[in-house]
């Protein structure tokens, strides 16, 4: 009888431990981003910042002036340029991390090749009470364009910080061959 009780107790202990292990959220989830999502047609607001996506354009060649010299950037895929307005609420911050999730679910970070373009949002400082406009630049394969989501946060892989996802409206028509970026954006 004593042996049976011990085996039962051991079995119950193993069961409880297995339940605890399987239901414990992973550390990455516990300390992951605080997510907010919304469509492009709306201003999407988190506790620390908000984003308004104004326009999204696609082109095969990007063109802009850098230090008085004309720059043209082509790509084997497609340039996607997102024009947006950011507003910070609590503290001076920057929104350095922007990722575009394509139709396949693959994630594309901002292109560093267009880092010298005018009005790059990722290099701007967002001051509370002073909304800032600018551009995010991505290079993605053409077959990813049918469904895209923009994900922005202060830095990549945020922990216990706000992360905003914006479902982008599908782009109408065919992409333009060349997109000129002026001092005031697109």
């Amino acid at each position: 009888m004593g042996h049976l009780l011990r085996i039962f107790a051991l079995g119950m202990t193993a069961l409880v431990l297995a339940m605890l292990q399987t239901t414990t959220p992973p550390y990455a989830m516990l300390t992951g981003p605080i997510k907010t999502a919304g469509p492009q047609s709306e201003r999407v607001t988190s506790a620390t910042f908000a984003i308004d996506v104004a326009t999204v354009k696609q082109a095969r060649v990007l063109a802009y002036d850098q230090f008085g010299k004309a720059v043209e950037l082509d790509t084997s895929g497609m340039w996607v340029v997102v024009s947006a307005k950011l507003e910070g609420f609590r503290q001076t911050m920057s929104v350095r991390a922007a990722t575009l999730i394509g139709a396949s679910g693959r994630r594309y970070r901002q292109s560093q090749r267009a880092g010298g373009a005018p009005d790059v949002l990722a290099s701007k400082i967002v001051q509370p009470g002073l909304p800032t406009t600018g551009l995010f630049f991505f290079e993605i394969p053409e077959d990813e364009l049918s469904k895209m989501t923009l994900v922005v946060s202060e830095q990549y892989d945020p922990q216990l910080q706000d992360e905003i996802s914006v479902s982008l409206t599908p782009l109408p028509g065919s992409p333009q061959d060349r997109l000129d970026i002026g001092p005031d954006g697109i």
Binding site: F89, R90, Q91, T92, I125, Q127, P128, G129
Partner: peptide, 8 residues
């Protein structure tokens, strides 16, 4: 009001 500005 809880808003905080950091230096340039």
């Amino acid at each position: 009001t809880g808003r905080r500005w950091l230096p340039l």
